[in-house]
Each structure stands twice: as C-alpha cells, then as structure tokens.
Simulated scan of single mutants.
Amino acid sequence: MSEIVANRYAKALFEVAEERDAIDAIESQLHTVAEGLAENEDLRRVLMHPQVSSDNKKELLNKLFEHQAGLEVLNLLRLLIDRKREAIIDEVLEAYTHMANEKRGILDVTVTTAVALEEQEEQDLAQRLGKALGKQLSIHVKVDKAIIGGILLRIGDRLYDGTIAGKLAGFKQEIKVGRQG
C-alpha cells in the first residue's frame, strides 16, 4: 500500500521537476535526504516518533537540509510530515528514480543473488544484460541467502526467477499437481 502512495508523491514531484527542467538535481537532493536519514538513526527515530510535533519535525528537517535540498524537496518533506507519511521517503526516492530513469531511457534492473557479487561480476552482468535488452541499465544488487543459489532478476515489472529456491518451489508444485492427477 505504501508503494502506491509513494508513487503518487514521486509522480507529483517528478512532474514539477520536469516543468522546471530539474529532474537530475531533484533526484540528487532526494538521495542526499534519504542518505542523511539512513545514516542517522537518532534523526530517523525523532521523525518517526508520534509524540514529536509536525512543526518540530519540519523545523528539524529544514535546518538539516536547507542547504542540500531545494524548495521542491523541502516542500515534499513538509507534506509527508503533515500527512504522517515520513516513513515512505525511501520509497518515494525509489519511485522517483524509476521515473527519471525511464525518461532517460535507462531500464531499472534489480539483481538478487545468494552471495554478494564482486564489482567486476556486476559490471559484466550489466553489460551482458544491457546488450541482450538493447538498453542502458541501472543495476541494483541485493543479497538474499534464502534463494540458495542462482539469480533473480526484476526488470521493470517483470520477474525472471533462475534461483534454486524458485526451482524447488516449481518442483514442489509439480509434485502436488501430479498427485491430484
């Protein structure tokens, strides 16, 4: 549900950014804010705390980010605070980045593996996928030990499952269907 809400905020911000020809600048500012919140657990706790007033939260963010973020991003933060949606800033950034990349002709790809890939492996994978798809890619790598092995690709809204866990689930389903037949 929060993803849908985050998309709405990101779309509104993206439309403003397009009008002002500031897509890259606003994306960079959003990154700065999200990183600042991710790196400071105390700040994040204050922002998420229900007993801290909206005015205090807005004043705090204003002081912290007034030199790193423009009016559009600060207004978005104020709006999120007013609507008690402080927790979705990362999702707004993700949705905004997706829209910006789409505008640039860059395809977002999320690669999930059981173990971390080395830098060279990431680059090779990005190059091979980009060539196969005929697009420039923005690759995001995640590690999830639950997939056991193999690779899980999310390209846009499509999911390609080449994981051992996925194959085991498929076998399990085949066995269930086989028993019923």
Score class of each variant (00 low, 15 high):
residue 56 N to W: 14
residue 36 G to R: 01
residue 32 T to I: 06
residue 42 D to K: 11
residue 61 L to I: 10
residue 55 D to W: 11
residue 33 V to W: 01
residue 30 L to V: 08
residue 49 H to E: 06
residue 35 E to R: 08
residue 52 V to S: 03
residue 29 Q to D: 01
residue 51 Q to K: 14
residue 46 V to T: 11
residue 46 V to A: 10
residue 31 H to K: 07
residue 50 P to S: 12
residue 39 E to I: 05
residue 42 D to N: 12
residue 36 G to P: 02
residue 50 P to A: 01
residue 50 P to V: 11
residue 53 S to G: 12
residue 58 K to N: 10
residue 42 D to G: 10
residue 59 E to L: 13
residue 51 Q to S: 14
residue 61 L to M: 14
residue 31 H to M: 04
residue 60 L to Y: 00
residue 45 R to E: 11
residue 58 K to V: 15
residue 41 E to Q: 06
residue 59 E to V: 14
residue 50 P to C: 00
residue 36 G to Y: 01
residue 34 A to C: 05
residue 56 N to S: 15
residue 46 V to E: 06
residue 40 N to D: 12
residue 48 M to G: 14
residue 29 Q to S: 00
residue 58 K to D: 12
residue 35 E to N: 06
residue 48 M to H: 13
residue 61 L to N: 12
residue 60 L to I: 00
residue 61 L to S: 01
residue 52 V to C: 08
residue 41 E to M: 02
residue 40 N to E: 08
residue 52 V to W: 05
residue 42 D to P: 07
residue 32 T to L: 05
residue 59 E to R: 14
residue 59 E to Q: 15
residue 32 T to V: 07
residue 39 E to N: 09
residue 53 S to T: 15
residue 39 E to Q: 09
residue 50 P to T: 11
residue 44 R to V: 08
residue 50 P to K: 05
residue 50 P to I: 10
residue 38 A to T: 12
residue 49 H to Y: 14
residue 52 V to L: 06
residue 45 R to L: 07
residue 37 L to N: 04
residue 35 E to K: 07
residue 35 E to D: 10
residue 57 K to S: 13
residue 43 L to Q: 02
residue 30 L to I: 10
residue 61 L to A: 12
residue 40 N to R: 03
residue 40 N to I: 07
residue 51 Q to G: 11
residue 33 V to H: 01
residue 33 V to P: 00
residue 59 E to N: 14
residue 47 L to N: 08
residue 50 P to Y: 04
residue 49 H to I: 07
residue 52 V to D: 07
residue 39 E to W: 02
residue 41 E to G: 02
residue 58 K to Q: 13
residue 39 E to G: 09
residue 47 L to Y: 05
residue 41 E to V: 01
residue 48 M to W: 10
residue 52 V to G: 06
residue 36 G to V: 03
residue 48 M to V: 11
residue 38 A to Q: 08
residue 29 Q to L: 00
residue 54 S to I: 09
residue 44 R to W: 07
residue 37 L to C: 03
residue 42 D to Q: 12
residue 39 E to C: 04
residue 34 A to T: 07
residue 45 R to F: 06
residue 61 L to Q: 09
residue 51 Q to I: 15
residue 40 N to F: 04
residue 44 R to G: 09
residue 59 E to H: 13
